[in-house]
């Protein structure tokens, strides 16, 4: 177990908290992209340099890493950004509206996931990071919170993405390796869902500007 994996997992948690504490959708999407990048690096950190000398598995891992990178860190954020620009909704909440409660709630969710993994789940096997399961659970819970509590469609999509990132982290811990097939399937699902949502958001906005963000978000002109 290397320290790097621990640090990467911490970064994952940090990104969860950041997403919970910012009201700007652009920042949330960028944070999501960063989380994707971290997830792509995770298998390398866990398996160390052994990845590149493992014979047949090398191709497998490299492919998976590249796919994750491409989808989670590049493609999906790109589409989300485009959707955001098209819909003209840039903020989840008014800038005056404080997000302390959202941040504190995310912190509570992180605490909860540490508690669940300490009390309810079996201890991590030797050699794997003790942070894996809590980090994954925290990401999953924060994603769930964003999906359920999001006021704009884009936040809901971001929440779904974060949730899926959580599944990814946990999956990696539980299976102990890169679950390629499962992962690709989920990724494709997400991609389709995101594209659909993006299109819906854009169309919804064009047809009825007042409906965008259920009135909770501010159009660009008003916010700046």
């Amino acid at each position: 177990m290397s320290l790097n994996a621990d640090l990467l997992l911490l970064l994952v948690i940090g990104i969860d908290l950041f997403i919970g504490s910012t009201g700007r959708l652009g920042a949330r999407i960028r944070a999501c992209a960063l989380q994707g990048l971290v997830l792509a690096a995770l298998p390398l950190a866990i398996q160390g340099t052994g990845v590149l000398t493992g014979g047949e598995r090398v191709l497998h891992t490299v492919l998976a890493v590249l796919a994750t990178l491409l989808l989670k860190a590049v493609a999906i954020p790109y589409f989300l950004m485009r959707a955001m620009r098209q819909s003209g909704v840039q903020r989840e909440a008014e800038p005056e509206h404080s997000l302390h409660l959202s941040l504190l709630l995310c912190a509570v969710l992180v605490g909860l996931s540490f508690w669940i993994s300490a009390v309810m789940l079996p201890p991590p096997e030797a050699g794997s990071s003790p942070l894996g399961v809590p980090a994954g659970l925290a990401t999953l819970l924060v994603g769930l919170y964003l999906t359920v509590g999001g006021r704009t469609e884009l936040t809901q999509v971001i929440g779904y993405l974060v949730l899926e990132n959580g599944v990814f982290v946990i999956g990696q811990r539980v299976l102990g390796e890169f679950p390629l097939v499962v992962e690709l399937g989920v990724l494709l699902d997400v991609l389709v869902a995101v594209m659909l949502m993006a299109v819906l958001v854009a169309f919804g906005h064009r047809q009825d500007p007042s409906a965008a963000g259920n009135g909770a978000a501010t159009p660009v002109g008003g916010a700046r």
Partner: peptide, 11 residues
């Protein structure tokens, strides 16, 4: 606070 949790998680 997360730091404290991490401290306690790693044993």
């Amino acid at each position: 606070a997360v730091g404290v949790l991490v401290l306690f998680t790693g044993g």
